[in-house]
């Protein structure tokens, strides 16, 4: 076999790729091909499977515990508050709905001004912008003013608003949003004191609201409460 024919052989090329023997330009060119050629990916996988057998002789060595601690800290540095239960609920729902946590954007001028200045505001938003609800909390009166900017409940369903206090285990319902775009919700004083640093979320629920007292449908939109 001539070197030219040799060079054209993808089997050898994939082996060189796996062994990290290609130079930068060859490697980049190979990866570009691999992105569109499944057969090339199969060759690479076959070599990886074969060569990884060489590591069977390598004895396990327990790494220092500090490595795991550093790793978890670098990946999950937000896990300081004991909010795992509702956070799991929130993230699971958000992932299932294919949306992310809305930006913590203040949109105070979206609500036509009426009455006293709010103490806190929040924008409860779907990441794709399909549902946006602006919220203003007036501490003097324990009133939450909500203004639905974009989006509707699904046919035969309702939108339910939830408060997740900082460090809380579970969301607490603030009620079902009315069909009206604007609404005022009287917040029980026990919950009103939890408003600072809370997260507001909206879930998809059957008519009448969640029958269980906990969210049952997809979490559609989320927003953090911030000082006005």
């Amino acid at each position: 076999m001539s070197p030219e024919e040799d060079h054209s052989d993808d089997t050898a090329l994939a082996g060189e790729y796996v062994l990290h023997l290609l130079d930068d330009a060859e490697r980049a060119a190979f990866e570009q091909r691999m992105a569109v050629e499944p057969a090339l990916r199969d060759l690479v996988r076959d070599w990886d499977e074969q060569f990884s057998l060489m590591t069977q002789d390598i004895a396990p060595v327990t790494p220092p515990a500090a490595v795991k601690a550093r790793l978890q800290n670098s990946l999950f540095s937000d896990n300081t508050a004991p909010r795992s239960r509702w956070w799991g609920w929130l993230m699971g729902g958000v992932a299932a709905a294919g949306i992310g946590i809305g930006a913590i954007l203040l949109v105070p001028n979206l609500i036509p001004d009426a009455g006293p200045d709010p103490t806190y505001t929040a924008s409860i938003a779907a990441e794709d912008g399909s549902l946006i609800v602006a919220a203003r909390f007036i501490a003097e009166t324990n009133t939450l003013q909500v203004s639905r900017q974009t989006g509707n409940a699904l046919p035969g369903r309702v939108l339910e608003l939830w408060l997740i206090a900082d460090g809380a285990d579970a969301p607490v319902s603030l009620g079902v949003l009315p069909d009206d775009l604007e609404a005022r919700i009287k917040v029980p004083s026990a919950l009103a004191t939890q408003m600072a640093k809370a997260v507001l979320a909206i879930s998809d629920e059957p008519v009448g609201g969640s029958p269980t007292g906990a969210p049952t449908g997809a979490v559609l939109a989320v927003g953090s409460v911030a000082d006005a």
């Binding site: 590591t55 390598i58 004895a59 396990p60 060595v61 327990t62 790494p63 490595v67």
Partner: peptide, 10 residues
């Protein structure tokens, strides 16, 4: 992690 640490060390 012990197996993979062994590989990294090797």
């Amino acid at each position: 992690s012990a197996k993979l640490f062994g590989v990294c060390l090797r």
